[in-house]
Design a binder for these strands. Sequence first.
RNA 1: GGCGCAUUGGUGUAGUCGGCUAACACGCUGCCCUCUCAAGGCAGAGAUCACGGGUUCGAGUCCCGUAUGCGCUACCA
Length: 506
Amino acid sequence: MTVRVRFAPSPTGYLHIGAARSALFNWLYARKLGGKFLLRIEDTDLQRSTDESTRSIIEGLKWLGLDYDEEIVFQSANAPKHRAAANQLVEAGKAYRDFTPKQERDDATIKQGIAERARAHAAEGTDHRSNSFRDLDPAESERRAEAGERFAVRLKVPREGKTHFDDLVYGAQERSYSEIEDLVLLRSDGHPLYNLSVVIDDIEMEITHVIRGQDHVTNTHKQILLYEALGTPTPKFAHLPLILAPNKGKLSKRKHGEVVSLTTYRDRGFVPAAFRNFLALLGWSPSETKEIMTLEELTGEFSLEGIGRANAIFNFLENDPRHWTDDKALWMNAEYIRTMPIDELLPMVKAELRANRLWRDEYEEDDRDWLIRTLDLIRQRFHTLKDFSAQGRAYFSDDFDFEPAAVNKNLRKEPRLRELLPAFADRLAKLDSFTAETVEATLRAFAEEQGVKAGLLINGSRTMLTGQAVGPSMFEVFDILGQKRSVARLHSGVPWFDAMNALGDI
RNA sequence: GGCGCAUUGGUGUAGUCGGCUAACACGCUGCCCUCUCAAGGCAGAGAUCACGGGUUCGAGUCCCGUAUGCGCUACCA
């Protein structure tokens, strides 16, 4: 039997990184075993579901490189089947009509409401499953329904016994029936509810393995009850540890903002492969110690046995731009940027430069070699794709900013630079062969002649040519920027210096 | 309140049948390299494996208890 797994998000917001990891694990499992990876949008909650969210999920999967097989299943389209299944269970005596009027619940206080209700039940000594309609005579039930009385459909959970399943991650699990309420299958307005829909759809889609977050374990017990009532074999289950916030709390969009949204990583310059790699290591570890892995390696190495059972903390510092997301994710992205094949990096950089109007068509043809050399030089110290248009701007445009700190450190400290730099520029202008080697020889000779340290001219040049205090080896930068631009930028210092001096200390 | 799950350095994890002087990665510190910053190389700090009992010659690894955290407990998904 071929493996069939699914990723079943509800489109009620942007794709959460925890959900993205579930998708990744499902995908890896399917690909590893030559099975199918299916996508099902659980849009049964019409109030909260949006098309925009559905699009965001699909885009997110695409960005991560997780392709799905077969058509997307929209759960709402299957509502008639879900209703039919519930009715069939009523007829079979496995479920019953509950004519209790619907209680309106305040969504915000629902959690404490549950606890209070549980306490009250315990105090009264009542079984939380006790429902007067559970044993209502079928004929009577039928009659009241025909008369148009509103009712919900609840599963009749057996009085004695327990459900059990072997979780592929957590091992043997069991739960006494007495802990499970007669769950509602159909609302009194006929709307099918989550647990019913999931089971019916999973059966219909012939899902063999359900791999989802650990927050679903209790649902799994309820769903098993449904499978049994329906007389259908259960799929295998594997629950995944959760991804928590640094305070060990739930990682939510509302509380933690954009760090939890997958699209953030795309928008802030992550290489998809890097983020995917990072995500794979959250809760799962390969048998080898190697952590940087291609998709193929990930697929080959992946196994459910490698998944841990403890929740993982997604480590980041709010309000700290340097650590806005997990350090390891940032490191991994930098690692990918500086080591991935330049051909693969190129399209991503192109998109980034284009978005910032720094892209020129010549980069595609005549200047392609120059572009590749430049990228190879500057990518060594970049962390995200954004850096190519920000820190890297001076390589693609003459219109770039000077960092005040760099100006103070490398230019203002030594007044002689106002004359030295242009004089050095004149030397460079005379060079017949302008390469890293000839520039270096020229600079060192000039420094000695003027009785200054080479470093003074090097650092001053760096700031004049790039606006920054840090960057690649300066002679390589001269080489990349070329003779004309280098000379011009060094000369541009004179009026600039005068303006600075007029302004006084910063 | 009830039920379930988890607990190895700051974080992610490894640790098969009990032999650990507890391993790897990120992060951190220092040094080297050097025109700066990275990268790289080297060195290092950081964990009495939540706590308390027990079994055993020997426990991170097995058993019991406690604590803490998380999850679920809805006519939400």
